[in-house]
């Protein structure tokens, strides 16, 4: 047992909540993370990373790194950790991988991005006609201002702010879920294509006609429950592969 936290020292999901880097907390995502932990059959560590504009980049990324190293210090090996997040948290999970890779640090077993925000520039085509209704809501929330609030003095195309602008080689397996009718759909598909081209294993699951952040409504939207079940399938597959790998190496 991990005496500090009371959780078993073993497989764990490090969860980074969404909210455009300016909103959200442990409260807002507790039930979603709980559902994920239940379906995956492992413990999840959710962190309340610092938000913009009070704490701009790289505060959130530093907090994600702190949590990852904290898990390592408590006996979790990288192969037992899967990093996950939704929306901005998904982008932050990808930025965490990039930061670890660039620092030559051991990488987690995999990462899961639920409608991850991969490009904070929100290119012109992003708020597009296919999701015009959702665009109205997001424009009303002034989502375009959130990226600059987080980036502050750093360019929005910095690879650790917009992972879609990064070199995507040398990353662990990624599961990306997106809807074909949400504002981030095009950016995420482009990200998945770039990651695959760079040799990173990517499982891209595209859902039909759903709004951004649909995962949050897992209790009454069946597509969200299905999506979380697929995350659980992915995590099991990743960890089964991890288990099999030493045996394969030994046999070889």
């Amino acid at each position: 047992m991990d005496s500090a936290a009371g959780a078993p020292a073993g497989r764990v999901i490090l969860y980074l909540h969404g909210g455009g880097y300016v909103l959200g907390s442990l409260n807002t995502h507790r039930a979603l993370v709980g559902s994920l932990a239940q379906r995956c059959g492992v413990a999840a560590l959710a962190i309340n990373y610092r938000k913009a504009p009070e704490y701009p980049f790289p505060a959130a990324l530093e907090d994600a790194l702190t949590a990852y190293y904290w898990l390592l210090e408590r006996g979790h090996v990288p192969a037992d950790i899967i990093v996950a997040g939704d929306s901005a948290g998904g982008g932050l999970a990808l930025a965490l991988l990039l930061a670890l890779r660039d620092a030559g640090e051991p990488l987690p077993a995999a990462a899961v991005g639920l409608s991850p925000w991969t490009d904070l520039k929100l290119p012109a085509g992003t708020l597009r006609s296919i999701c015009q209704e959702e665009s109205l809501l997001l424009e009303a929330l002034e989502i375009r201002s959130w990226g600059p609030l987080y980036a502050a003095d750093t360019p929005l195309n910095h690879p650790l702010i917009s992972p879609g602008r990064a070199e995507l080689h040398g990353l662990p397996p990624l599961l990306i879920q997106i809807s074909n009718a949400e504002v981030l759909g095009d950016d995420v598909r482009r990200f998945a294509d770039q990651a695959r081209a760079a040799g990173t294993p990517v499982t891209l699951q595209v859902f039909d006609g759903l709004v951004h952040w649909w995962h949050l409504f897992w209790r009454f939207v069946p597509e969200a429950a299905t999506a979380l079940d697929r995350v659980a399938d992915f995590t099991r597959q990743v960890w089964e592969t991890e288990e099999a790998a030493p045996a394969v190496r030994q046999a070889a």
Partner: peptide, 25 residues
Amino acid sequence: GQFMPWDIFLEEADVEGMAAEWIRR
């Protein structure tokens, strides 16, 4: 308005001064 799934428990954690939660069976 959210409720935790059945059979899942919370435990507060302090990650280097950052609020965090273990969420698990």
